[in-house]
Amino acid sequence: MLAITANRLDDGRVVYRTPLGAWSAHLSEAELFETAAAAEDVLKLALSEEGVVVDPYTMDVEAGVPGGKKRIRETIRNTGPSASTVLELNA
């Protein structure tokens, strides 16, 4: 399955496009597409929303979580840095 993801324009945060055409911070709320062809029209629409998001693209989703060749990258985008931050480590 594919979802459409981007970074939000005003703060850069990772977002996913929902079936209602909104953008959510949760992958679980993303609209899923069977194929790239099925996602094409919505991706075009997303690309035209320059005032809301930056550089939308499709990503693989498997069983509700990021999958495919970019699995690690998309997992990190989805859940945050895998490495502990200096704050946690100093706590």
Binding site: N7, G12, R73, R77, G80
Partner: peptide, 16 residues
């Protein structure tokens, strides 16, 4: 994009 880069602003994985 070229304007923000000239001011040191990149867009990374999670944020600017």
């Amino acid at each position: 994009k070229p304007l923000r880069l000239q001011n040191g602003v990149y867009l990374q994985l999670h944020a600017y």
